[in-house]
Design a protein around this nucleic acid. Structure first.
Length: 188
DNA sequence: CGGCTTTGACCGGCGC
DNA sequence: GCGCCGGTCAAAGCCG
């Protein structure tokens, strides 16, 4: 697996976390799935995950769905973007905490109790300006010690941790704080 | 005071 | 056409 893509999906085992009492160190990545084009039925998430445990590591990171960097003008517009992006990734991690620190800054915008799971599903958006990536977090309905995280979209900026990692040997306490504008290194 | 979380309401899609 | 369900919005409250 290659997690080193600049703009690709977040890696739970991020290097920069080390030495900062990071929660990630307490979890283990159990499964990693690509949900591009939505071939994956969320309703079967747990079951598919469980079965996939027989052979972990077969998924490849699919990059190339460059973010449209669209400002949301309406719900329909957003849904359209979602369809255009069509770039989803889900993975299951064994963790006591639900919010996996993946190096990006997320803002919670919703919480919903869904039929497919006894556990509430939490909705997060990337709080970085212009970045329209979303993620859903819910506990595995079969094994609540696992957290299922689904990412939707691709970040059009580097992770704050990445910046930190590139600039400093140690992470500043407020490393979350992003510069006013995304780094110019983002794809154009 | 600013940013974030919480939570109920609302909206659109889908199945019956 | 109706009801259900998932996803999102937005106001209010909380916290640093």
């Amino acid at each position: 697996m290659d997690f080193s893509h600049k703009n690709s999906n977040p890696n739970p085992n991020y290097t920069c976390f080390s030495g900062n009492s990071d929660p990630v160190a307490e979890l283990e990545l159990s499964d990693y799935l690509i949900l591009d084009d939505g071939f994956f039925e969320e309703d079967n998430l747990s079951q598919s995950m469980a079965s996939s445990e027989k052979g972990i590591g077969g998924a490849n990171v699919v990059s190339g769905a460059t973010s449209k960097n669209t400002n949301i003008k309406s719900k329909s517009e957003e849904k359209k973007n979602k369809l255009e992006l069509g770039h989803r990734v889900a993975f299951r991690t064994k963790s006591e905490i639900e919010v996996i620190n993946d190096g990006y800054k997320w803002r919670k915008y919703g919480k919903k109790l869904v039929k497919t799971s006894p556990n509430p599903r939490n909705y997060y958006k990337c709080s970085s300006e212009g970045c329209n990536v979303k993620k859903r977090i819910e506990r595995d309905r079969d094994d609540r010690s696992y957290v299922i995280t689904t990412y939707e979209g691709v970040h059009n900026h580097d992770s704050p941790y990445m910046l930190c990692y590139n600039q400093k040997p140690l992470m500043a306490p407020n490393a979350w704080t992003l510069p006013a504008s995304p780094p110019s290194s983002s794809s154009t």
